[in-house]
């Protein structure tokens, strides 16, 4: 059984239908890609899968539990984590605090009103592990706003990983990145693929075809093709929509 499954998801805003009968399935341990042109409904799909939007119809099942319509915080606590296309960090906080805030160990201490945060060895150790994973060691006490764009992307992913998730949704992780930063990100995701189930929305086809085990193509709010990168290159829908041209 798939770790995460979306069945017949519909999402409409008033009279406009954004997602129509989307069914997706993500196996544990795989890197899954979602691609499609601008306005295809990819981010809306992510918003539905992670609880930001309630689907108009359909169901979402994570690890055998129906999570349809559950709020994002509850879905997050079950082990579903995500990053955002637009940078979504705690900008007044330094790098390590961004990570600490997302640690389940820290979340469990939510009601503590007198203990200290930044002298706690358990929290610091866990945060340093995540910073090591995303390559931000040495910059932990910098304000997150002072990081380079590429490093802020890495921190965005770090915050998602700090929650110790079973599945990570990354919304256009290469958005705004240069060639070198994208290369770094490829290395990072290759490093993470053994530990997490990853789902990525991506515009950069080379990036996606290089990393993904399975890819779903969304167009006009529907899944028009699904398969491995090799299968998709020969898919007539993909070729017709010119999405596979770079593959």
């Amino acid at each position: 059984m798939a770790l995460f499954e979306a069945r017949n998801i519909h999402k409409r805003f008033g009279s406009s239908v954004v997602l129509e009968d989307i069914s997706l399935s993500f196996e544990e341990g795989q890197v899954n890609g979602i691609m499609g042109p601008n306005g295809a409904g990819k981010t809306t799909c992510f918003h539905c899968l992670t609880g930001h939007y309630k689907p108009s119809r359909g169901s979402i099942v994570f690890d055998g539990t129906d999570i349809t319509g559950k709020p994002p915080q509850r879905i997050a606590r079950m082990g579903v984590s995500r990053s955002f296309q637009m940078m979504n960090l705690f900008d007044d906080a330094c790098v390590i605090e961004n990570i600490i805030l997302a640690l389940p160990e820290f979340r469990r201490r939510y009601a503590q009103v007198t203990s200290s945060v930044f002298n706690d060895k358990v929290l610091l150790t866990q945060a340093y592990e995540v910073l090591d994973q995303v390559g931000l060691l040495g910059q932990e006490w910098q304000p997150s706003l002072s990081l380079s764009y590429g490093n802020r992307r890495a921190l965005e992913i770090g915050v998602a990983l700090a929650a110790n998730p079973r599945i990570v949704f990354l919304d256009e992780p290469t958005s705004g990145l240069g060639v070198e930063a994208t290369r770094q990100l490829v290395k990072l995701i290759q490093k993470l693929r053994d530990r997490y189930t990853i789902v990525m929305i991506e515009h950069d086809m080379r990036f996606l075809f290089e990393l993904a085990d399975q890819i779903s193509v969304i167009h006009w709010g529907q899944v028009i093709a699904q398969g491995t990168p090799d299968e998709l290159q020969s898919n007539k829908w993909v070729q017709r929509s010119a999405l596979g041209a770079v593959a």
């Binding site: 915080q73 997050a76 900008d91 389940p104 009601a111």
Partner: peptide, 21 residues
């Protein structure tokens, strides 16, 4: 404290705070 830092996280980014649980 953790409670206070969470309050500050909510001030900075309420949406992200809910997405980390």
């Amino acid at each position: 404290s953790p409670f206070g830092r969470i309050l500050q996280a909510i001030r900075q980014n309420e949406v992200r705070a809910s997405f980390i649980g």
